[in-house]
């Protein structure tokens, strides 16, 4: 009973579905929010979804932690994705720290962390709006 339930298309791939959901939420926050701190948080959610993707692929049903035991029939989970993700977590922390540090400096210099206000200030700094060809416009934001 439980077997047929877990092998159903949705529940069987539950982790992967959640990975995709998290990934989309994260990416959406990064793209849609104008607040610089919220963008960093979105980036974090996005990265976390990748951690989950890796950890899920290392898991084996009934597998234990990969520590050698005397039982030769023991099934182990794959430890390599865990190791990779430890590295990726470190990279993620460094990115978040650097991003937040930049936000602090931006706040000191611009007195705001809202993207549209910063955009207005930068437009004024440029004196007159800089000459744009169509593809440049997006690049300014």
């Amino acid at each position: 009973m439980l077997d047929t339930f877990t092998s159903a298309w949705f529940v069987g791939h539950y982790n992967y579905w959640m990975t995709i959901v998290l990934m989309m939420i994260g990416l959406y926050i990064v793209v849609s929010r104008g607040n610089l701190v919220k963008k960093i948080i979105g980036l974090n959610v996005f990265q976390t979804s990748v951690f989950m993707l890796y950890i899920s692929m290392g898991k084996i049903f009934g597998g234990t932690a990969p520590i050698l035991t005397d039982n030769p029939d023991e099934v182990y989970s794959n430890p390599l994705p865990h190791v990779l993700i430890l590295t990726a977590i470190v990279v993620g922390i460094a990115t978040t720290a650097l991003g937040l540090a930049l936000v602090i400096r931006i706040r000191e210099q611009y007195d705001t962390i809202e993207e549209d206000e910063i955009f207005d200030i930068e437009q004024k700094m440029a004196g007159q709006p800089e000459s744009h060809s169509p593809i440049v416009q997006g690049g300014e934001r």
């Binding site: 980036l43 990726a88 990115t95 650097l98 930049l102």
Partner: peptide, 21 residues
């Protein structure tokens, strides 16, 4: 330069994360 670095950070990290996926 600060906002340039920030935008680079956001896009660069998205790029790197795509690569890891």
């Amino acid at each position: 330069a600060l906002t340039a670095a920030y935008n680079y950070l956001i896009m660069g990290t998205i790029g790197a994360t795509f690569f890891v996926i």
